[in-house]
Amino acid sequence: MSVALLFDLLLAAALLWCSWRALAAPTLQRAVVLFIVFGLLMTLAWARLAAPDIALAEAGIGAGLTGALLLDALGALRRRGGTGEKA
């Protein structure tokens, strides 16, 4: 088994674990942070797939802008006393 394949398998496992935790995390705050980590791991996956264009876009839009939007929505949810914080 080559090192590159091992890295790909590890990265794929990290992607799956991160997305699972983002969906199952007890608090929304943690879920959003895990989702941002998921976006950054996706950037790595695009780099491995020899797609630097997508990696750039994913880092800026997928992880950066989506993360900012989600955190802003989370803040708004809290301020209105929604159930943003569970457990």
Partner: peptide, 29 residues
């Protein structure tokens, strides 16, 4: 730079637009 580089290497309108938007969000925050 990204906009210009898009013609011959990774980059282009999408990435350049994302960076511009990030700058606006940073200024807003």
């Amino acid at each position: 730079y990204l906009l210009w580089a898009g013609a011959f290497r990774p980059g282009g309108a999408f990435q350049a637009g994302a960076v511009l938007a990030a700058a606006a969000v940073l200024l807003h925050l």
